[in-house]
Amino acid sequence: MKGYNFAYLDEQTKRMLRRTLLKAVAIPGHQIPFGAREMPLPYGWGTGGIQVTAAVLGRADTLKVIDQGADDTTNAVSIRRFFARTAGVATTTRTASATIIQTRHRIPETTLTEAQIIVYQVPQPEPLYQLEPSRTETRRMHALADYGAMHVRLYEQVARYGQIAISYDYPVMVNGRHLMAPSPIPAFDNPKMHRMRALQLFGAGREKRIYAVPPYTAVVSLDFEDHPFRASRAAHVCALCGDRASYLDEVVTDDRGGRMFICSDTDHCASRRESAP
């Protein structure tokens, strides 16, 4: 685009971002502060993810952007267009054809490969913020791996509800060392992070933090031995493709309690319908 560098950010800023990313990959799950730039999209709408994508994007890349699992949600469209306009890269809705996938709130159903990078948009990178608002204190807790308080939170839930009642942004332990917020993906997606073949990068623009999970790294959801982590989904079948295992959206069809359930991952759903006899 005239008057702007490839992928919007200037090369110096990209180098700063890449240095941050290298550091993040070297210490899996550890939040690295970085000089987040003002972006032409609002904070909370994916500025962190966009900066990370801009830093790793090359001319030969193919980009896929999803929000809520769908390529066609307005924010996904807006971000995909942003890169089509500022970088002129190829874009796709096919998970398998993408080299970089930027996502908000989902991990695709299709298993990712070593040749892919998934970039998560993160609103709140600090998994401990509800227990301890002071960043000075949470930094110390991470340094000392002092995570007893997080387990106390889970204990309280089991004591009260008979089960762990966190549905999304379910805290995980990365590489047995750092407690990490997986971003607000449903807990259903957590197991996909464990030993994922693709590189996982996380960008939080407003909070100015980047973190990463390198390929094949252990990502374990916190739980108790006698109350193990459960990846739950609506107990229904996709009304469009008939999938019984994918994560489902509930769509209201009328004002008399009518409901239908369909795949949240639009590419997954479309592919299944195409290949169906």
């Binding site: 002092d146 995570y147 007893g148 308080a149 387990h151 106390v152 204990y155 309280e156 089991v158 004591a159 739980d223 108790f224 031995e225 006698d226 109350h227």
Partner: peptide
């Protein structure tokens, strides 16, 4: 945090991960 959670915290910090036994 409940009385049980208060007493259980040190056990969990030390690595206890069995809810029933902690309780």
């Amino acid at each position: 945090v409940s009385a049980g959670g208060n007493v259980g915290e040190r056990l969990m910090a030390a690595g206890a991960r069995h809810y029933g036994r902690i309780r």
